[in-house]
Amino acid sequence: MTAAQSPPATRRSIPWNQHPIASPMLGIAGILLFLAVWELASRTGIVNPRFLPPASEVLLQLGRNFVSADFWTAVGQTMTSWAIGLAIAAAAATVIGFIIGGSDFLRRATHTTIEFLRPIPSVALIPLAVLLFGVSIESSLLLIVYASFWQILIQVLYGTADVDNVAMDTARSYGLGWWARVRHVVWPTTLPYLITGLRLGAAVALVLAITAELVIGTEGLGKQIELNRSGGSVVPMYALVIATGLIGVVINIGMRFVERRALRWHSSVRGDVAV
């Protein structure tokens, strides 16, 4: 498969693109190629440069953003609602998930309700958020919490359902109380699922944070993008779009890091449960 797995004694030359550093190098080449195509498409006028400015100008603007206080203020506002929303959703989903997951009766009784509420698109709540909170951070929070709550809750429910019956019975016969059972049996089983839910929820929360700013107009990157669009400043708009993508990448990498750290003790770090 990869070069690392082939025995070192063999003299057979491996294909050049299976060299260990080939993948990252090719990845960078791919990004450069992508930027070059973008640049050419704009410079030669295949796409009207008024609508798609050259990549170089956008990247320059992005560089200027990185030293501008306004940009970091907007990033801060977006990330604040992201973090608060995700924290509320995670706390609520964990507590409710453990309560529902801990009882067979509750699990069965809530099944249809959860399956009905879960697919409701959180953006349907935008008008409600505007009526209730207007242009303030609570509007963003309502959307973020609603969207990421279900992602995390479903994972927690999967997790609590996965508890090993033998382990549970053992804990019971050793006389562990309710709290001790939750702490030492249910919690370790559920943690990997909870973290998967957090990772999914974190991505969704960012989407909803930006959406709320874009559509409702709460302060943050999304609002800046919309202001630049309506003001016709195309280059700054593209720079901000790239910035949101970078934030997304950082969140993904960060959550994967958290996942590895939190589950270091776990004998077999589970594959993701498909969601």
């Binding site: 991505a203 960012l206 989407v207 930006i210 959406t211 874009l214 559509v215 999304g222 993008i225 901000l240 779009v241 949101t244 993508g245 970078l246 934030i247 997304g248 990448v249 969140i251 993904n252």
Partner: peptide
């Protein structure tokens, strides 16, 4: 590209 929030 996947990490860009689609609404933007």
């Amino acid at each position: 590209l996947r990490a860009i929030p689609p609404p933007v």
